[in-house]
Design a protein around this nucleic acid. Sequence first.
DNA 1: GCGACTTTGTGCAGGGGTTCACAAGCAGTT
DNA 2: AACTGCTTGTGAACCCCTGCACAAAGTCGC
Lengths: 270, 270
Amino acid sequence: MTETHQTHGPAALDVTGVVDPSSAPSATDQASLSELRDIPQATVTRLATYLRVLGVLADRDTTTVSSEELAAASGVGSAKLRKDLSFLGPNGVRGVGYEVARLHARIAGALGLDRVHNVVLVGVGNLGQALARYPGFARRGFSLVGLFDSDPERIGVSVGDLVVRHVDELEQACLELEATLGVISTPDEAVQEVADRLVRAGLRCILSFSPTLLDVPDNVETRQVDLAVEMQVLSFNGARNIENGPSSSASSSSNSPSSTSPRNGSVIAP
Amino acid sequence: MTETHQTHGPAALDVTGVVDPSSAPSATDQASLSELRDIPQATVTRLATYLRVLGVLADRDTTTVSSEELAAASGVGSAKLRKDLSFLGPNGVRGVGYEVARLHARIAGALGLDRVHNVVLVGVGNLGQALARYPGFARRGFSLVGLFDSDPERIGVSVGDLVVRHVDELEQACLELEATLGVISTPDEAVQEVADRLVRAGLRCILSFSPTLLDVPDNVETRQVDLAVEMQVLSFNGARNIENGPSSSASSSSNSPSSTSPRNGSVIAP
DNA sequence: GCGACTTTGTGCAGGGGTTCACAAGCAGTT
DNA sequence: AACTGCTTGTGAACCCCTGCACAAAGTCGC
C-alpha cells in the first residue's frame, strides 16, 4: 500500500511550488545532521543491525513490527532497542508498533545511508576478490566503483563488472569516481602506504583487513577487522562459558516458539 | 615459576625430562583457568591485540617494552593497557617494563592459546577460499584442519593443502579431527543448518560471516563479522567526525592523547 | 464516547569500563 | 648506602551503557 498521508515526507510531492528546489533539506536529512553527534557508539553499531533486519522484513511486505519482535530478530533486549531508537526521536505508534518502511528510512537517514557511498578497494588478492564479489555491499547502500592492485599480473583483470587498475592511478581515480570510502585488503607491508594515498585522495573513511595499526590524521576514521583476533576472542569466550557451566546464561537466542503468532510465525527465518 | 628458556616453540620439545605429557598444568595454565572469569569483555579483545604486537616485537628480538611503547603500538592509552594486564597479575618490572617473551606467553596462556586450536571451515566460496589461504591463522595459534561445502563441483578440490569434503561428512569429521572451532562462510540460507551440524558435532565456538542471527544453545559461543555493518558504522563515524570539526576530535582511533608524539613511535612499522 | 488493552518512550538505579593521579618498587649513579 | 629517575600497578572518580519499571498514548470493542 502506497497511500501517502500529508506526512512531512521527502520533497517529492510539492504542492506549493515555492519550496527551494535544489537543496531542499528533507526532515530526515535535517534531523540526521543535527542529532548524529548525540548517538552513543554502541547504539550506532546496533542501528546498522536493525537496519538489516528491517530490510528483510520489508522484503516480506511486513508493514509493522513491535519492539519485542524486532529486538528478538536482532538479538537484543526490547528495552535496549527502544532506547536506541529513541535517539532518533519518536518513531513508532504506541499500542501498534513501528512502521517498517518508515523506520527503515529513518535509520538509513540517520546513518547517512540515504545516499549511496562509492567504495574503492585496494588489494585484489584472495580476500580482495572475495570482497569485490560480495553481494551484500550493493544491497546495503554501498557501490564498489574501483579496484586497484600493484601486481602487474592482476592489472586489467576483470573482477565482477570492474577492471583492476594500477595503484598508481588511485589518487586520481578516487577524485574522478567521487569515492568516499576505501577498503584495504593488501599484504601488511603495503597497508600504510595505501592508507597514505587514500588520505591524500581526500578519503576520510578507511576499512582495513590488516592487523597493523594505521597512522592517519585525526579527521580520518579507520576501522579494522582482524580475523585472528575475532577467533581468539571467540575461543576465550567459549572456554569461559564452559568454565562458567551451562547452568544459567542469558544468551541472545531469537528462539521464541510460543504460540502467539497472530500474523507472523517466524519473524526472521531465511 | 617457569624460568625463561630460549626455546621458540610453544612446548613439547624441552629436554628437562619429567614432564607430564598429557595436561602439564604449568603456572600459566593453572592461572588461566582460575582467572578467566574475571577478565572484562573489552579487555579480552584488547589482549588479543597486544598479543599480536608482542609477536612482532619478539620477531625483532626486542627483549623488553614499556607500557607506553606497547600502548602506542596497539592504539590504546598506556593506563588502559596497564589495567588490562593487571587482570593477569603482575607481569612487568617497575622502572624497566615488560619482558616481551614472558608477557607474550602470559597472555597466550590466559587466552587459552598455548595449545593449537583445530578449525573447520564450511563454505568454500570466494570468501571461504580467501579464509582458507589466509596465513594469519596458522601464525596466531589456529590450525585449519577441514574444508567443507555442499556444491558437488567443489568437492575434491584442493585449497591450500586441504581437500574440500562434502558437508555431510561434517559431523563425523569434526570428531575425528578434534575440531574445537567452526567458521561458516556459506550463503545466508545455509548458515543455520550448518550451525546446527556444528553444534551436533560438539563444537562450542562458531564464527560466522553471515549477518543472519544464529540460533544455538546457550553453551555455544558465537561471533559474527558483518562487513556491511562495519562499513556503515565507519561511514557514520566519518560523517560525525566531519560534523564535529577536525579541531578537537577525541576519536576512538589510534590517536595518542598526549602531545608528546605527533607521529607513530615506529615501534611497529613494517 | 468510554473503558480496556497494547505498546512506545523514558526516568532511574546499577554495573562496567575508562581515565586520572599517585604510591610502590626497581635500576643506575653518586 | 642513599638518592634520583623511571615505570608499573592500582585506588577512585567519572562517564557510558544497560535493564527495569512505569507513565503516556494510541487502538479496539462495545
